[in-house]
């Protein structure tokens, strides 16, 4: 029987969170685990799209989301938030990116700030489940195939019209030949 901690208020994350954390096989213990995650969080803020093991991507996602939500909630003048950003982001120029680029980008989002996709395993080389983790609104082309309505493309319209014309011509020919047959029969 636990009691919820009330010392600080935290915004709700819009991602699914597993009830327990993953240990990530760290000989250095919990500190080593955070160091591992720090690298991926830093890389995520730098490159905006990463291909990772599913487990580590899932863990990283929570930390990145929390960091962004804290930055949105408190801004860059809040000392504890700045301290947190300083711990999690190793390349210090990325702290500016977090507060000046990512916060304005995500401040009126109603969804999660990151996306996690399952990636195919390259059998038989990689046996662990792979995944792609990305920040939303990144400059890269989307991972999922985009379904664009292609009917209104000019060549499709022209082809459609050509098909119609061809068919009309065919029908005319058929009716003509039928009429001729009728005349011959009579």
């Amino acid at each position: 029987m636990n009691q919820a901690e009330v010392s600080q208020l935290i915004s709700k994350l819009r991602i699914r969170i597993s009830p327990r954390h993953k240990n990530l096989k760290c000989p250095e213990g919990p500190q080593g685990r955070l160091n591992k995650l720090r690298k991926t969080v830093n890389a995520l803020f730098k490159y905006e799209r990463l291909e990772l093991n599913y487990t580590i991507a899932d863990e990283t996602r929570g930390y990145a989301e929390r960091l962004i939500s804290e930055a949105i909630r408190h801004g860059d003048t809040h000392k504890p938030t700045m301290e947190m950003a300083d711990y999690w982001i190793e390349e210090k120029q990325l702290i500016h990116k977090l507060f000046k680029v990512l916060v304005p980008r995500f401040s009126d989002y109603k969804t999660s700030y990151t996306m996690l996709y399952r990636a195919p395993k390259a059998y038989p080389d990689i046996v662990y489940p792979r995944s792609v983790l990305e920040l939303r609104g990144n400059p890269f082309p989307s991972i999922l195939p985009q379904r664009i309505d292609q009917r209104n493309f000019i060549h499709n319209i022209l082809l459609e019209e050509a098909k119609k014309a061809y068919r009309a011509e065919k029908y005319e020919q058929i009716t003509k030949s039928l009429n001729e047959q009728d005349v011959v029969d009579k």
């Binding site: 901690e5 935290i10 969170i17 955070l34 863990e59 929570g62 929390r66 947190m84 999690w88």
Partner: peptide, 12 residues
């Protein structure tokens, strides 16, 4: 600094 540990201990 363990942001998710904090999150799992609180009610949002």
């Amino acid at each position: 600094y363990d942001l998710m540990k904090q999150y799992r201990r609180t009610i949002p």
